[in-house]
Each structure stands twice: as C-alpha cells, then as structure tokens.
C-alpha cells in the first residue's frame, strides 16, 4: 500500500454562524485545503447568497431581467424570490446610496433594510456601494437601526473599519473585511479589526473578486496564499471564512451582457453569463470560498449540484 503524501495542517479556519433560527447556517471550520477531506476536515459545505438591490437596476443583463425584472421595484418581493429559488442567504446592496448615482441618504436606505429584514428570515448581508466614506456612514446607520438580529455588513475597508466596526461590535453584527486583491493588506485589516475589538467569529474576509477573464487568477492566488498561511503556518490573522462577491463582477462584463445579434460568434447569450458565473464561483470554491454571492438561479442550481458531488 502506497503512503500518499499529506499536507499537515496546524491551523483551523474559525467557525462562524450566520443568521438565527432554522435558517441559520455555519461556515468555516476547515482544517484542510478546500475539499481535501483526505487531509483534514471540511465540516460545512460552502453557502450561496443571491443579490438584491434596493432600487431597480437599469443596466443588468437581459438574462437577469427575465428572472427578476417583475420584482425590481420591490426589494422585499425580490428577496423572497431569491429565498424561493434556494438561496442560503440574501445580499441587499444599497445601490441607491451611491454618490455617483442617486446618492440617497443613509436614513432612507435604512428603511429598506428594515423592511427586508422584517420579511426575510434567511441570513441577510447588507452591502454598500464601495465608497469608503458613504459606506461608513450608511453601514453604521444600518448597524444601529437593526438591533433585533445579526446582519452581515460590508464591504468594510481600511478607510471605514472603525466607523462600521464599532457599530458592528455594539449591535453584534458581522463584518466582511474587504481588501484590494492583496494578501498583506488583507491580513493587516484583520489585525486592525481585532485591535478595534471585533471578535474573530464576527469577521469574514473578502479578497476582492476578479471575474473569469478579468483577473480571476489574482484573486485565486490571494485566496490560496491566505489558506496556506492559515493552515500550514498557523497564521491566526488569516483563519477566517472567505467571502466572494462574484455576481457583480461577472455580470458587468461585456461577455455576460452582449446579445447574439451584437456578437453572433460569442455563442448563446442565454447561457453565456451563467456559465461565466458558475465557472468563476467554482474556481473560488476550489481556492477556499465559504460564502459566494451570485445573481442567477441557474448558477445556483449548477453550483449546488457541483457542491453535492464534491462534499460526498
């Protein structure tokens, strides 16, 4: 009998339970590389969230409009649709607050969060517009307004971690620590959050995502490196579940949005974006993602099937 070489792990990813009640789920807890259950433990299957906006998106791909167009005006109905379609969690993006767009005040966005939070029992991620200052303000207001359930707040970055972090500590919310595809900055932000007093089990790491053909390999390498340090160097500042916001990056590409009339040689438009979203998701699952945000229900189905086989 041949003795296969095995990677010895001397660290474990922290376990984090998101949500409460029967819709709650736990992620993390790995003591081996993704799906390497012959080397260690992977106690929880990665989870999939679907994305909802607080205002109707005007530039989403046709394939997404077909599925969600009728509920774009109603974030609560949209969130419910995601749950019906099988999403483990819902991510509510407060797109209305974008200073380059509607620039809605934080207080107004908070009202939408309240409504969705009341109607949706699945774990709820509340996402900003990737503007440090505005997100700091909005997410802080959300943290304080929703005091009856834990939310997941992000993106939290070096420019606003104190503001959002302090709100999260006070009201027991989770934070998604986002860094710009840089392993060293990712570690530094985790240290800063720890110094601020955010407890380990309240932190998820978002390495920033590049979609397929748009820098996927950079994110993949950073995630791979994070897991190497976490598991083989016992680096406790990187032993956090990984969060990937895939949908947004994939569905903004021209490959996902362009019709067959415009580009007859690019293949079937109906499945092109979905295939890209599924491929990107699978690549990140293989490099350690614990929670992935996607947009299309067909992606959800495909990835679910993949996960079922991989977790056997």
């Amino acid at each position: 009998m041949v003795d296969f070489p095995k990677v010895e792990s001397n660290g474990t990813i922290k376990e984090t339970t998101l949500g409460s009640g029967d819709k709650a789920f736990t992620i993390g807890g790995e003591s081996a590389y993704p799906f390497h259950t012959f080397e260690g433990k992977m106690p929880h299957a990665p989870k999939l969230a679907m994305e909802v906006w607080d205002i109707a998106p005007s530039e989403w791909a046709t394939e997404l409009n077909v599925v969600f167009g009728d509920v774009y005006q109603d974030p609560v109905a949209w969130a419910k649709r995601c749950v019906e379609l099988g999403a483990d969690a819902v991510m509510l993006t407060l797109a209305s607050t974008d200073p380059n767009g509607n620039n809605a005040p934080a207080a107004q966005a908070v009202e939408t969060v309240k409504k969705v939070s009341k109607e949706i029992r699945s774990p709820l991620i509340v996402w900003g517009v990737e503007n440090d200052a505005k997100d700091g303000e909005t997410l802080r207001a959300v943290a304080e307004a929703i005091d009856d359930r834990p939310l997941v707040l992000g993106p939290v970055v070096e420019g606003n971690y104190k503001q959002v972090g302090a709100g999260a500590i006070g009201y027991k919310h989770f934070v998604v620590a986002n860094s710009p595809i840089d392993i060293n900055l990712a570690k530094q932000l985790n240290i800063l959050l720890g110094n601020l007093g955010v407890k380990d089990q309240y932190v998820l790491m978002d390495p920033s995502v590049g979609g397929l053909g748009y820098g996927l390999e950079y994110t993949y390498s950073v995630m791979e490196r994070a897991r190497q340090a976490a598991l083989t160097q016992g680096d406790d500042k990187l032993q956090f579940p990984l969060f990937c916001n895939v949908g947004k990056e994939v569905w903004k590409t021209k490959e996902a949005k362009t019709s067959e009339q415009q580009e007859p040689t690019w293949g079937v438009a109906k499945t092109r974006g979905i295939a890209m979203e599924a491929m990107t998701t699978v690549a990140f699952l293989l490099s350690g993602a614990d929670l992935v945000v996607i947009r299309h229900p067909e992606t959800l189905k495909t990835v679910r099937q993949y996960l079922a086989e991989m977790m056997q």
């Binding site: 392993i183 060293n184 570690k187 530094q188 240290i191 340090a229 160097q233 680096d235 500042k237 990187l238």
Partner: peptide, 12 residues
C-alpha cells in the same frame, strides 16, 4: 517567509 507580512508584524 515564516510569517506572512502585514504592517503590524511587530505587534503580533
């Protein structure tokens, strides 16, 4: 390279 770089390496 025994530990991964971060600006706060001396504090860990």
């Amino acid at each position: 390279s025994e530990t991964l770089y971060s600006d706060s390496w001396l504090e860990l």
